[in-house]
């Protein structure tokens, strides 16, 4: 009885794990298998033609990169500021916890809510219309928690002795931040940014009303009325009328490229995350 329970639990949980892994790996395999044939050099460097049935996704890639880089530029100072305030400048535990809770909550806010927010504030109030900058700002707001929390964790892990040694040399807090804390914890900013970008790269909901259109945009020339194309929105639109077989293969190709971009960003974030894991486990 006890023996069979012992075996049963191991078998059942092993089965669950197998199903979970198989499901997720299978999903990637399907995308790779169907999208693979469509992806070639031309696909990446040509512009879209015939409503997605021909040509490539060059401007979609460019648009996504524009959105990502503007989001990162805006997000970095805000996230670093928040992390420093939480770890260094706030002295009492109460406000610190409040700030952390706020960040966790912000992290749970659905993408579509950011989208509507951006639509009201940037598209309508600022009168920008659909603009790459609206998209960048909205995405920046969305990934602030990821970057800030990642940096906070690293700042927390900086050994006390370094801070004490620096203070012993007569450095003030600001000098300690620049000389000890930020250099030691910079990996947190990098990891957080990569993960944040991986998330932002795949999101449609925040940018569908604020920044991106399906066809007919290249490099933006200003801020007002200067939308961009983007990879996830492209897939989103094509997926809704995916009955045209010639669109089909291009669609899978675009999905494969997007998936590769996102996985690439998460994979280069891996080593430093693993290191943190190892340290946490010792």
């Amino acid at each position: 009885m006890r023996k069979s329970l012992d075996f049963l639990l191991a078998a059942v949980t092993a089965f669950c794990a197998l199903v979970a892994v198989a499901l997720l790996v299978g999903l990637v395999a399907v995308i790779a298998q169907r999208g693979g044939p469509a992806v070639n050099w031309g696909f990446l460097t040509e512009q879209i033609r015939l409503v997605g049935a021909a040509g490539g996704i060059f401007w979609n890639l460019v648009g996504t990169l524009i959105l990502l880089s503007s989001a990162l530029t805006v997000c970095l100072p805000l996230a670093i500021g928040l992390a420093l305030v939480e770890r260094v400048w706030l002295q009492r535990e109460g406000p610190r916890r409040l700030l952390r809770t706020l960040l966790y909550t912000l992290n749970g806010v659905p993408g579509i809510v950011f989208g509507i927010f951006g639509f009201v504030v940037f598209v309508q109030w600022c009168g920008w219309g659909k603009s790459w900058l609206s998209g960048g700002l909205v995405l920046a707001l969305m990934i602030i928690p990821t970057v800030a929390v990642s940096l906070m964790e690293r700042l927390k892990a900086v050994p006390k002795k370094y801070v004490e040694a620096a203070a012993g040399l007569g450095l003030n807090r600001a000098q300690i931040v620049w000389a000890v804390l930020l250099p030691q914890a910079w990996g947190g900013v990098v990891t957080g940014s990569l993960l944040g970008l991986a998330r932002a790269a795949g999101e449609v909901a925040p940018i569908m009303f604020t920044a991106t259109i399906f066809a007919g945009a290249t490099l933006p020339k200003g801020i007002k009325e200067s939308p961009v194309l983007s990879l996830p929105y492209h897939i989103f639109i094509l997926a809704q009328d995916s009955f045209d077989p010639s669109v089909g293969s291009k669609l899978w190709g675009a999905a494969l490229v997007l998936l590769a971009l996102v996985l690439f960003l998460s994979v280069i974030a891996l080593p430093s995350r693993l290191k943190l894991h190892e340290e946490a486990n010792v």
Partner: peptide
């Protein structure tokens, strides 16, 4: 795999 974009799942 937690990072796979939702539009890909949608597809």
């Amino acid at each position: 795999l937690a990072g796979v974009p939702s539009v890909v799942y949608g597809l």
